[in-house]
């Protein structure tokens, strides 16, 4: 029974990863599809990824015991503070600003959609903030759990 559940969980994880890779591949290779097909594929892949992610999170939630819930809660609570501090610091770190700008250019060139500078800056800023917050949440939860050993 347990191994059946584990196998199902692994299959969902692999399917989620495949849908994310598929999304990036379709987004970059826009010229391989007609505009209509390209949009339908992107929307379908996002929908599949979201559905799979809901299933993954629900499964993980069921498996968490109270120590793990406490560590996740600690991580989520303090990640916002870490995000605020890091974003403030990034405003003064030029190499980091350049890295974000380069990433924005790479995405713009790959997608073939020309974006105006403010929307590009906003989108990349949003993506960077999300990555920092998720990373901080995960790291803080792990550190908290480690201190309770």
């Amino acid at each position: 029974m347990a191994s059946k559940i584990t196998k199902k969980g692994a299959a969902v994880d692999i399917a989620f990863l495949a849908s994310m890779i598929g999304f990036v591949a379709v987004m970059i290779n826009q010229r391989a599809f007609t505009p209509g097909v390209h949009s339908v594929l992107l929307i379908a892949l996002v929908a599949v990824a979201l559905a799979l992610n809901i299933s993954r999170e629900a499964r993980k939630e069921k498996q968490l015991d109270e120590l793990e819930l406490a560590s996740a809660s600690f991580g989520a609570r303090w990640a916002v503070t870490v995000l605020g501090i890091v974003m403030m610091l990034l405003l003064f770190v030029t190499p980091m600003q350049s890295a974000v700008a380069h990433l924005a250019n790479a995405v713009e060139n790959g997608s073939g959609v020309a974006m105006v500078r403010p929307s590009k800056t906003f989108l990349m800023g949003l993506c960077t903030a999300m990555v920092i917050q998720l990373g901080a949440k995960s790291a803080l939860a792990s550190i908290w759990k480690w201190t309770k050993r």
Partner: peptide, 14 residues
């Protein structure tokens, strides 16, 4: 619960 939880409780950390 997980073994980690038992360990943390046993050590008075949680």
């Amino acid at each position: 619960v997980s073994r980690n939880s038992v360990n943390s409780i046993e050590n008075g950390k949680f």
